[in-house]
Amino acid sequence: MILDLHTHSVVSDDGRAKVPNYCQWIRARELPIEGFVLTEHRQFDFASDYSALARQFGLTILKASEVETEYGHVLVFGVTETLTQAFDFADIHLPLAQVIEESERHGAVPVPCHPGRKRVGMAAHIDALGVPEGVRIVEVFNGGSRGEEDRIAAAMADEQNYRGIGGSDAHIVSHIGRCATRFDGAVGSEGELAEALRGGDFEALSYREQA
């Protein structure tokens, strides 16, 4: 099963895409993804229910979060209500160690995203802060990467023996599906997604056109 693990909707402050339009776009362009995960910035979107939309388009639509730490941005998959009470998702200075510890305590999976990016990526902070404990997966393909960012991410993943995921980091409709992750089995819920990531049977994919 192929899922785009990193997308934003209008629920995020810089997101400009409406979720129905993502679905329409995926089907109109016959994209090879079977669903996507909405990783809204600094929050978990409990309010939105996309189940009817998912059925209408035959897509899997899941929810997660993108939080901010001293090592940059981190996707958190498998978010539960109790996890959102364990730390303040809106805090832009979260300690990565706390995000990792609390995520694992609550069955969630933290994944530093666009780690090769300046300032908001993990690699930029390793010289000053050291290699963080507990990271097992990083985003190696990000649809918004510029220059050497994905190469830096992949090199870091190789060096630290991290698994890699892919996500488009879409903020507008037409950017969905630029990168994705293939899972060996079916993933139908946030819990199953966290379980699949823990299991390690996945592969990062990039569909970006090479300039």
Binding site: R16, G144, R146, G147, I172, V173, S174, H175, R208, E209, Q210, A211
Partner: peptide
């Protein structure tokens, strides 16, 4: 949807 990209295709 509008995107401004450079020669390298970067947004």
């Amino acid at each position: 949807d509008l995107t401004v990209t450079n020669e390298a295709g970067e947004t």
